[in-house]
């Protein structure tokens, strides 16, 4: 493909990204740097503010009996309840990523089983990359930017909840130094989705061909958008290795949670994705 085709692909993926992902990096950075005027996020920094902030968080997936469980210490129930709302937001995010994947030229022409495999293996990596713009060293935006939850608070939760977010903060703080913008992100996410080395793929060749075109488009995009950032393309590709380790650890933590938390039920969509993953 020539440069004009590669630029058209970059524009197309950026438009799809804006269409399917409601909280962009531009918006998130404006909120985090206090440039949104009166529209400041509600800060959750302890159990009391978590309780106060719950009304902001989408709680529709939580069964009533879960909320009224008497046998549990109140803060234990609160942690589980919060974990459930995270799950419902994640399931919604999987739907958004699926729509984005379908907008990648050629994706829906791939074998349907391969489309499923690419999503199964790619979606958590994509979600972790998409967390980075929402994070700074002190905390993260959640609930579409309505809430800022502090890193210290997440670290203070009981184990293993306390271990879930810290690796994502460490990754994100480093990732954010690359200073990608939303149009770069759109291409990078497509590259991640189109990974030809996912286990169980039936027809690798067309996937690799699609990825190669998106990689060319990403390389050109970074040259034009970040002319002074040396080796940015190479640095970005290296992040994909770190990402796989984070996802493996994340899935193991969830599997541990499933064993240790009697009252935890995993969202059916997330269950599907994580079953036999790593």
């Amino acid at each position: 493909p020539d440069a004009a085709d590669l630029r058209a692909l970059a524009r197309h993926l950026y438009e799809a990204y804006l269409k399917y992902f409601p909280l962009t990096k531009v918006k998130a950075r404006a909120i985090l740097s206090g440039k949104t005027g009166d529209n400041v996020p509600f800060v959750i920094h302890d159990m009391k503010s978590l309780m106060e902030g719950e009304q902001f968080i989408n709680c529709k997936q939580i069964p009533i009996q879960e909320q009224q469980r008497q046998s549990m210490a109140p803060s234990d129930a609160l942690e589980l309840r919060f974990f459930h709302s995270c799950q419902s937001r994640s399931a919604e995010a999987v739907r958004e990523v699926t729509e984005f994947a379908k907008s990648i030229p050629g994706f829906i022409d791939l074998d349907l089983n391969d489309q499923v495999t690419l999503l199964k293996y790619g979606v958590i990596e994509v979600l972790i990359i998409m967390m980075a713009p929402l994070m700074n060293k002190d905390g993260t935006l959640i609930s579409y930017g309505q809430i800022f939850m502090t890193r210290e608070f997440l670290k203070s939760l009981r184990k293993p909840f306390s271990q879930m977010m810290e690796p994502k903060f460490e990754f994100s703080v480093k990732f954010n130094t690359l200073e990608l913008d939303d149009s770069d992100m759109a291409l990078f996410l497509a590259v991640i989705i189109l990974s030809g080395d996912r286990p169980g793929l039936l027809n690798v060749k067309p996937i690799e061909q699609l990825q190669e075109t998106v990689l060319h488009s990403l390389e050109l995009q970074l040259k034009l958008n970040h002319p002074d950032s040396l080796q940015l393309f190479a640095k970005l590709l290296q992040k994909m290795t770190d990402l796989r380790q984070i996802v493996t650890d994340h899935v193991h933590l969830i599997q541990l949670l499933k064993k240790t938390e009697v009252d935890m039920c995993l969202h059916p969509l997330l269950q599907e994705i994580m079953k036999d993953l790593y």
Binding site: T98, E99, K102, L112, V116, I273
Partner: peptide
């Protein structure tokens, strides 16, 4: 296919009315 029912549904429905 049964193992990934919801993912299949999400991929095949352009309007994604799947109840999450």
């Amino acid at each position: 296919k049964e193992k990934h029912k919801i993912l299949h549904q999400l991929l095949q429905n352009s309007t994604s009315p799947v109840d999450l």
